[in-house]
Design a protein around this nucleic acid. Structure first.
Length: 212
DNA sequence: CACCAGGCAAGTA
DNA sequence: TACTTGCATGGT
């Protein structure tokens, strides 16, 4: 492709500044947030995580031992609380059975192997798996989401038919592996989509990507 | 009131 | 295979 992705990144960074996404205190907290934020506003996820913190159960050992119904109550503000409680339970099952109850051992797994393993968990799809890899395990893995599609297609940079893996590969083929850069770029695309590329606002006015 | 939010899986034909 | 639906709270 002719357009330089780094040019897009630079424009967005100049316009919006650093985003400092996902400032969780531990990789475990970040991982939980990755599941809770599925199709959900981050503000609601913070409420759920705050519930877990105040209850003193925001650790693998404590959370994995909770009855499903109680876990669901804590994460209620994040929405879809029953299904998310089940999904977290599935993730804890993976940690128990494959990584000997050790989050550290899981996060130390080789990147591609860990990605495939995460994808085998019911309730963890590509975006959640890659968010865990990038934001919790700090691997240089690009996270694609609905906003990534929307922005690139609105600017005629991709076709409507590209898959998640296509788009991820496109970014990773054109940008050097860099965890911090991938982190900021993803956050900036979300930021731009919210401000200029909403579903109800197909024509961007004052868009920082005008003319790319 | 309607619409949206940092998805994913199951059901239907 | 290709669409559609369910899951659910909270902010604008």
């Amino acid at each position: 492709m002719q357009v330089k992705l780094l040019d897009i990144y630079q424009r967005l960074y100049d316009h919006f500044g650093p985003q400092q996404w996902w400032p969780g205190e531990t990789p475990f907290e970040v991982m939980i947030g990755a599941v809770l934020t599925q199709n959900t506003n981050w503000g609601n996820v913070e409420k759920a995580i705050d519930n877990l913190k105040r209850a003193g159960v925001l650790s693998y050992e404590k959370m994995a031992a909770l009855p499903a119904g109680l876990l669901a109550e804590y994460i209620r503000p994040a929405g879809y609380y029953n299904i998310k409680a089940a999904r977290l339970g599935n993730l804890f099952g993976l940690i128990r059975e494959r990584y000997e109850d050790s989050v550290e051992r899981m996060l130390a797994e080789e990147t591609e192997e860990l990605r495939q393993t995460l994808l085998s968990v019911r309730g963890i799809g590509p975006e959640t798996a890659d968010s865990i890899l990038l934001y919790a395990a700090r691997r240089p893995v690009f996270v694609v989401d609905a906003y990534t599609y929307r922005i690139l297609s609105r600017h005629d940079l991709i076709g409507e038919e590209v898959t998640y893996d296509d788009l991820q590969q496109f970014f990773m083929d054109n940008i050097e592996p860099d965890t911090t850069l991938y982190n900021e770029f993803h956050a900036l695309l979300v930021c731009a989509a919210k401000d200029y590329c909403r579903k109800t606002n197909p024509r961007c006015s004052a868009c920082p990507l005008e003319g790319v």
